[in-house]
Simulated scan of single mutants.
Amino acid sequence: MQRLLLLAIFISHLAFGQQEKSSSSDNYIYPDSSWQSETNVAKNGWNNESLNKLKLYIIDSTNATGVVVIQSGKILFDYGDTKETSYIASCRKSILSMLYGPFVESGEIDLSTTIERLHIEDVGGLLPEEKKATIKDLLTARSGVYHAASNEGDASAMAPKRGRVKPGEFWLYNNWDFNVAGYILEQRTGKTIYQLIDSMFAKPLKMQDWNINEQRKTGDSTRSKYLAYHIWFSTRDMARIGYLMLRNGKWKDEQIIPADWVKRTTSVVSPYRKAVEEGTAYYHFGYGYLWWIWDGPYNKGAYQNAYSATGAYGQFITVLPKLDLVIAFKTKYDYGRQTSTDLYLKFLDKLIAAREK
């Protein structure tokens, strides 16, 4: 009997220990009204001198206006005016992907729905084959619809002739897809993208610099009636968006984006090697659901399971789960500045090299 009692006590202690371990794994640091700064960078293996040199690299070799690097919920490194808001270009698309998550999970949006069923038409009309494209095809840039977009800044110059490619068959970075995906989200939810950002992200994440009145759509409606939903964020609020993704859609005790959706959208749908074969590749990235994915052979070491939002002129949000790291990098184009993707990737390499082996 005594042996049974001891066994029962042991099992209860074991269960308690496992429970404690499980709950402590969720005990992440989150910012409140402002980010905390890491005062001892060496604690997590970073070299302070190397980080200082990184700041000189930003000044000498890039045109960045704001940089925030978050390590495990605290600011590891920052540079420039991180509170200033500016246009984040195509990073808007990755944010749209995030907004879709709760509505897909609830069933309010069915990704297999065709644009024909949604009565999507455009200037000059769409082809019967194009109307078979689904919402999923739009979110993965595989619609096969090569109608002109209302705004420039995509790879439409590489597009096959309209009607030659079936929906889902070919990947092409195409603003028509992204703008229509934004329109559909607004139609299905009854709210603007900016209202959704305000309620789903800005308020629960306590974004410091978000201003809904600063947001506006642009585009040439004579080319396409679906305008681009441009977004103005600060660098430190871009970091909050990245940190939400790093934490699998959870912010403190609230699951804002379904974890399954975060995983799904940041997994490769269009592999890098296939894009190279088809002549549509962008650097060494594969593509998921509006996120650029570090794909083989580049998804090694610190870049394992990494993904980025990228935007013209030098706007980037990168998540490196392997290092528990988020990088928000801003180049304010209003100043006539821009930072190339080449330079940003060099910056990332130098950042990672600043970590002690």
Rank of each mutant, 00 (worst) to 15 (best):
L5D: 09
F16E: 09
E20K: 10
E20D: 10
E20V: 10
S33D: 15
S34M: 12
S34N: 14
N47G: 10
N48Y: 05
E49P: 00
K55H: 08
Y57C: 10
D60R: 13
G66S: 02
V67S: 09
F77D: 08
F77I: 03
D81A: 13
E84N: 11
Y87I: 03
I88S: 02
S97C: 08
G101H: 04
G101T: 05
D110M: 01
E129P: 00
K132D: 09
K136P: 00
T140E: 12
G144V: 01
H147W: 05
N151G: 07
E152C: 08
R164C: 08
V165S: 02
K166T: 08
G168Q: 02
F170S: 01
W171F: 15
Y173R: 02
D177R: 03
L185W: 00
E186L: 01
G190L: 01
K191R: 05
I193P: 00
Y194S: 01
I197C: 03
I212Q: 13
E214Q: 13
K217G: 04
A228L: 07
S234E: 05
T235N: 07
T235H: 04
A239W: 01
I241N: 05
L244N: 06
R264P: 00
T266P: 05
R273S: 15
T280R: 08
G286W: 09
Y287W: 10
G288S: 12
A309W: 00
A312T: 14
K330V: 10
K332D: 15
T341V: 12
T341P: 07
L343K: 15
K346V: 14
K350G: 10
R355K: 15
E356V: 08
K357C: 06
